[in-house]
């Protein structure tokens, strides 16, 4: 029998870890968690290595029935968490007993939350990672009625902190300022546009997903395609229609649009939690 039965899979729940780092030479994206800060926090609070797989949960979360005891943690900016009917706190570890049902019906703040379980999920690595991405993995997200296997089927109650929590330092998620640095094709920008870029308010656009996040503005600029070159999560591309696209974890490993700016992972963490229509501004990093 599986450790966990998936009663509802949720809208977009997927297994992720820190990604598939060394397969760009075969055209494989990095993949992995969008918000590394909260994913690492979830793993840490259940005393896992930060490299362990977690479930990344977007929009509406899953309903999971546990077939044995487990120590779990849900982390993120805000979500409704129920163990049977009892409400649980975010960013706090807690014990789930055999037969309990964990449901995550609503993410109340941000876009995604992370579920980590002590000992980790038992998943086969494909090209060095469990991160779900087709066709490297069979499916791109969790499916209803799928059985989830855990590496540990018992809890060593005496050895573990069963209520670990921290007062989370995630104030920076509330800021609308995202730190950027010059990208490899920064010189492609005119001085005038360069200034405008740093004095404009952008809105998160509809075409935003695990591949990229669209930043919309009133700026008028055109670009052209360049020779196809290296792209990585964090690269900000200027498309021929003048849109800015921040490449996220499932982005292509190469592309032909000018890479005008680059966001740090810390900025990507924050951006991944900004909702459709939310406003942001870009600030040039001082170092």
């Amino acid at each position: 029998m599986s450790s966990i039965a998936v009663i509802k899979a949720g809208m977009y729940t997927s297994f992720q870890d820190l990604g598939r780092r060394n397969y760009a030479h075969w055209g494989c994206p990095v993949s992995g968690v969008m918000d590394e800060y909260h994913a690492k926090l979830a793993n840490t609070l259940v005393q896992n290595s930060v490299e362990e797989a977690v479930l990344e949960i977007s929009l509406q979360g899953p309903t999971l029935k546990f077939n044995h005891d487990a120590l779990v943690c849900v982390s993120g900016l805000g979500a409704d968490i129920f163990l049977n009917q009892q409400s649980k706190k975010i960013n706090h570890a807690f014990v789930v007993q055999k037969g309990n049902v964990l449901s995550l019906p609503k993410i109340s703040q941000g876009n995604r939350i992370y579920l980590a379980i002590h000992g980790g999920f038992k998943r086969k690595k494909k090209l060095g990672s469990v991160a779900q991405f087709q066709p490297i993995t069979e499916n791109f997200k969790l499916k209803k009625n799928e059985g989830i296997q855990l590496k540990k089927t018992t809890i060593e109650y005496s050895k573990l902190d069963l209520n670990a929590h921290v007062s989370v330092e995630n104030e920076h998620y509330k800021s609308q300022y995202l730190e950027v640095r010059k990208g490899p094709d920064f010189n492609y920008l005119s001085k005038k546009f360069e200034e405008q870029l740093l004095n404009t308010t952008f809105k998160i656009g509809k075409q935003s997903n695990r591949m990229g996040i669209e930043l919309l503005s009133e700026l008028e600029v055109k670009s052209t395609s360049l020779i196809t070159n290296i792209t990585q999560p964090g690269c900000v591309q200027l498309t021929p229609s003048g849109k800015l696209i921040v490449l996220m974890k499932d982005a292509q490993v190469s592309g032909g649009y000018p890479r005008v700016l680059v966001l740090s992972q810390r900025s990507l963490d924050v951006l991944s939690q900004k909702k459709l229509g939310e406003e942001i501004q870009l600030v040039m990093s001082k170092n």
């Binding site: 760009a24 030479h25 075969w26 055209g27 066709p135 490297i136 196809t228 292509q252 190469s254």
Partner: peptide, 11 residues
Amino acid sequence: YFIGFLPGFLY
């Protein structure tokens, strides 16, 4: 020249 765009796509 290289593989990119999609997993396995040859340039």
